[in-house]
Design a protein around this nucleic acid. Structure first.
Lengths: 122, 122
DNA sequence: ATTTTAATGCAACTTAGTTGCAATAAACCT
DNA sequence: AGGTTTATTGCAACTAAGTTGCATTAAAAT
């Protein structure tokens, strides 16, 4: 199922702002915040952006990550992978996929590690 | 090193609001938010609470966790353990301690799993 | 006991994200 | 294709969480 099918089959309309959001998120190496997104697409409206994130999160097109800066970061959920948040420089890094963790009774969808990144440890 | 020593040796003063915060956090089963804290101690001032969290986080007396509700949750860092955040009911659960994860070059201080909890899966 | 200075408590502020609503435009239907 | 329906947009106003400035208070050092 392509991304566009995922959208239309879930009853969402494929609009211009949504296409742009998806095309921009598709080329990111890390999750990005609304602030970072507006630098790449200054025409976007705040509420359109956040509403799109909510809609697409609800059908697992997008994955949101809470930073310790009080902002949310977003990425496409193409390949599931863990993330690392540096508590010193607050960067969010995608980590290589790892074998899924099993936890009796729980459905685990993502993993976040917090700590200090190699650069900040120096 | 006791908790009080940890506080005074880091140059912090052992004040009445701080003692109360610590005594209340000490008897929690899960991390709590400012809202939840005020129910247990209605005399606390918002800025005193948050400033205490910041100070004590900086010296690892307290561990903060970002929920997907846009709130931060706090707990004492006595025993390090992972947490689970349910994306459906937004509860935060302490999980039993697990063998530490190694990640080349990184210092990992905590792990958060996100997904759906057993109750919500039913 | 006095002095020093960190911490408190209040009010005002900031910032991220949400909401209401009229206008717009996908997608559906002959 | 043209008309209709209804989801989505874009704007402004709002909310909620957390922060900041500052005068006052009280730990702790002398």
């Amino acid at each position: 199922m392509t991304l566009n099918e995922k959208i239309t089959r879930n009853g969402f309309r494929l609009t211009a702002p949504r296409k742009k959001i998806l095309s921009i998120l598709a080329i990111q190496q890390q999750p990005i915040s609304f602030d970072e997104y507006t630098l790449l697409d200054p025409t976007i409206d705040k509420s359109t952006f956040y509403r799109t994130m909510q809609s697409f999160e609800s059908v697992r097109i997008i994955n949101g990550i809470e930073s310790d800066t009080g902002k949310r970061y977003f990425e496409l959920t193409e390949t599931i992978h863990p993330h690392f948040i540096c508590q010193h420089c607050h960067s969010i890094v995608c980590l290589p996929s790892q074998p899924p963790i099993a936890l009796q009774g729980y459905s685990i969808e993502s993993v976040i590690y917090k700590g200090v990144c190699p650069q900040c440890l120096k």
